[in-house]
């Protein structure tokens, strides 16, 4: 069962991910790390659910191109971003993957509006970029901080600006790494609704990492359960995370 009818969109390219990452145990005795997963994410929200340390953030980093897997293949539709067999690797900045980091990573020396403009096509005129940035800020109800710098934001405002920045760049894939972790419950629900609404309009694969069951159920169309570096279960969100009795 899915919401919004986003899942059925056949025009959007699907993200297919197969990757293997291994890290040898460090000399200081920290455990080694091994991740071996394969899944597909269609338009709509795919939730990566699982305990911390399961490798969820590593998967996002590989999709964005911030980390090179040891083997596997990552592609969006016909565009191959990484292929371990041929050595093909598409650089980060050409992928158009919006990444909302857990720390949000807002640029501290730029106003909210400049932050959002940063990702907007530079072929557009400054006025057009500004107006698109403002539109995105308005959609996430953060227009009132447009000319302020991040250090003056409340937690919720920072979150909204980060989301506005991610969605304004016209991304082909959106990655959300625990984007609501610092929020209280009320705010979390409010933002989840905004994201869900925006996601419906955007028609691209959105991968959300969380270890909150309620958040996963509220946001997800598809679910993927990750534990110990492997996919344990995948399917619709109800199949993967059934209502607990």
């Amino acid at each position: 069962m899915s919401v919004d009818g986003v899942v059925g969109n056949r025009n959007a390219a699907a993200l297919s991910v197969a990757l293997r990452v291994r890290r040898a145990p460090s000399e200081r005795g920290a455990g080694g790390f091994s991740l071996d997963v394969a899944f597909e994410a269609r338009a709509g929200v795919t939730v990566l659910f699982g305990p911390s340390g399961a490798g969820k953030s590593t998967i996002l980093a590989a999709i964005a191109g911030l980390l090179r897997p040891d083997a596997g293949r990552i592609a969006l539709g016909n565009d191959v971003w990484f292929d371990g067999a041929t050595g093909a690797l598409c650089p980060v900045h050409l992928r158009k993957v919006a990444y909302v980091f857990q720390s949000l990573a807002l640029f501290p020396h730029m106003s909210a509006c400049k932050n959002v403009e940063y990702g907007i096509d530079r072929a557009l005129s400054p006025a057009a970029r500004r107006s698109r940035a403002m539109q995105s800020l308005e959609r996430f109800r953060a227009a009132h901080v447009a000319d302020r710098k991040p250090r003056t934001f409340s937690g919720g405002e920072a979150q909204r600006v980060a989301l506005a920045r991610a969605f304004a760049m016209n991304p082909r894939v959106v990655l959300l790494d625990e984007p609501f972790s610092a929020m209280d419950r009320e705010l979390r629900r409010e933002l989840a609704v905004d994201v869900k609404r925006f996601a419906g309009d955007l028609h691209v694969p959105i991968v959300l990492v969380t270890h909150h069951r309620n958040e996963a159920r509220a946001m997800g169309d598809q679910g993927i359960l990750i534990a110990a570096g492997a996919v344990q279960k995948r399917g619709t969100i109800d199949e993967v995370l059934p209502v607990e009795r």
Partner: peptide, 27 residues
């Protein structure tokens, strides 16, 4: 400088030089 900020610039479409000039160096 927090490396995440530089990575964020890259995901937003900045090549290595633009990320350095507009984010990494100013900070």
């Amino acid at each position: 400088v927090d490396p995440t900020l530089v990575l964020a610039a890259r995901t937003l479409g900045a090549g290595p030089l633009r990320a350095f000039v507009t984010v990494h160096f100013p900070l």
